[in-house]
Design a binder for these strands. Structure first.
Length: 466
RNA sequence: UGCCGGAUGGUGUAACGGUAGCACAGCAGACUCUGAAUCUGUUUGUCUAGGUUCGAAUCCUAGUCCGGCAACCA
């Protein structure tokens, strides 16, 4: 939360800090004849509760004398009974159309070790009992929660109305955030983690804060996204495209530009001396003049992106092809004179190109990125695609959502990067020109050996139009 | 089929009862040493039927569709 940019000062609260107070509110309810101890078995309990269309019936223990309930409750706390043997229930209305008002459980015996209170308690309050009272103890005015708690609100209010709470906060429910091509429920995300479909909660493909952070999403981008989608009671599903837009928008302003070739194709420049390297100036960030420039070495042998060349270019292919020219970013032009094939596979092995300096009058429609072979550094690059292949993986309630997992959501590869990239600090953002935004992984990067996560790809009309 | 909630372009979100706007996505174009960014234009919408009103996304009535609720989970 702090990383996201929020500061809650000293207001860090735990319901467990109020266990003693909550216990006394429970005794107060018993003393007011508003709660009783019940020993119905879970099966009987369910039977007595009834169903939405049919009224429930009262527990035989409902009219247990106040003193007896009080005594039993104290003995529950003292640890005299086995787990689950007794529960404290509110005395409300077994015929209520709202199931949550049919004498809900307030306390149960559970010998569970608590991460803050240790073994001090063997009885614990239920969520419904602890929620409103904790809010009241903290003196908050509005308690924001998600839609599924709407039917709990009458109980929230009932509890606050029936004990001497310091104030009566208001619970207001809003829709949770849903995104296309992923799942957002903790239960489902946990399943992905447990089944090792992802590499932990902070896997960069996870829609968790730690996952998005590791992926390279910025706090400013996430905040901008949240402001754009707003807060309503409508159970909506936002397109990830909007999130990605917010991420690009922020990264475009702050990410330093670098060149890296992820799928290399060697180019030999025929009219270039064997030994010399020419230094060229490259702009670090055209959106931010303050970011300055850097020097890049240009040599006889370079790598370009394999898909920036087409032996048989389709219509509207603006890049390199036999006999055609392109501009090399910051380094003049090349014209493809010969294509060298691998004698075994027949695949393109290398290109032989003529070079013309930047001031040459050459009409080209494209500029491509490159890296000098002699200066290229190998780096690990992890590219991510959507975690699921369908917009709404849980749409079909019968089927298992994991059936829609995208087998190609992670692609690891070795790329050739310009030397400056070796100094990338974990968490530092870059734009690999013409490819996307990347972030040095905070877990797996080593000094001098960064691992890059693709945060989000650059928009690409080529991809859409083929 | 009981209770609670919701419905505005493809998506998300605005609009004291008074011109249905914004963003994303899409499409078309301009510009460009990133097919990025930027800029311009543009397609598409008030769930339905009645009613109140000079005027309804907004108020009323009825309906339709969608979501949630039957843990001693949160």
């Amino acid at each position: 939360m702090r990383w996201l940019g929020f500061d809650w000062g000293t207001h860090h609260y735990f319901a467990s800090d109020y266990f003693e107070q909550l216990y006394h509110y429970a005794e107060e309810l018993i003393e007011k004849d508003k709660a009783y101890i019940c020993t119905l078995s879970p099966e009987a309990f369910k039977e007595y509760r009834g169903v939405p269309t049919r009224s429930g019936k009262e527990s035989p223990h409902r009219n247990r004398p106040t003193q007896e309930s009080l005594d039993l409750f104290r003995r529950m706390r003292a640890g005299e009974f086995a787990d689950g043997a007794y529960v404290l229930r509110a005395k409300i209305d077994m015929s209520s159309p709202n199931l949550h008002m049919r004498d809900p459980v307030l306390y149960r015996i559970k010998r569970a070790h608590h991460h803050r209170t240790g073994d001090a308690w063997c009885i614990y309050p239920t969520y419904d009992f602890a929620h409103g009272l904790s809010d009241a103890i903290e003196g908050i005015t509005h308690s924001i929660c998600t839609l599924e708690f709407e039917v709990h609100r009458p109980l929230y209010d009932w509890i606050l109305d029936n004990v001497s709470a310091p104030c009566h906060p208001q619970q207001i429910e809003f829709a949770r955030l849903n995104l296309t091509y992923t799942v957002m429920s903790k239960r489902r995300l946990l399943q992905l983690v447990r089944d090792k479909q992802v590499d932990g909660w902070d896997d960069p493909r996870m829609p968790t804060i730690c996952g998005m952070r590791r992926r390279g999403y910025t706090p400013a981008a996430i905040r901008a996204f949240c402001e754009t989608i707003g807060v309503t009671k409508y159970d909506s599903t936002t397109e990830v495209a909007l999130l990605e837009h917010c991420v690009r928008e922020d990264l475009n302003k702050r990410a330093l530009r670098r060149m890296a070739v992820l799928d290399p194709l060697k180019v030999v420049i025929t009219n270039f001396p064997d030994t010399s390297a020419v230094e060229v100036d490259a702009i670090n960030n055209p959106e931010d003049p303050e970011a300055g420039t850097r020097k890049l070495a240009f040599t006889k042998e370079i790598y370009i992106e394999r898909d920036d060349f087409a032996e048989e270019p389709p219509p509207k292919f603006f890049r390199l092809a036999p006999g055609k020219s392109v501009r090399l970013r910051y380094a003049g032009f090349i014209t493809c004179e010969r294509v060298e094939h691998d004698p075994d596979t027949g695949h393109v092995a290398a290109l032989h190109c003529r070079w013309d300096p930047p001031d040459t009058k050459v009409k080209v429609k494209a500029t491509i990125h490159w890296v000098s072979c002699a200066h290229a550094r190998e780096v690990e690059v992890r590219r991510y695609d959507r975690l699921f292949t369908v917009p709404e993986p849980t749409e079909d309630k019968e089927a298992d959502f994991t059936a829609h997992l995208n087998p190609e959501s992670l692609t690891c590869l070795k790329g050739y990067a310009e030397p400056a990239l070796l100094d990338a600090q974990p968490g530092e953002w870059f734009q690999f020109e013409r490819t996307g935004y990347f972030c040095a992984d905070s877990k797996d990067s080593r000094s001098g050996a960064p691992v890059f996560n693709q945060t989000v790809a650059l928009k690409d009309v080529r991809a859409k139009k083929g």
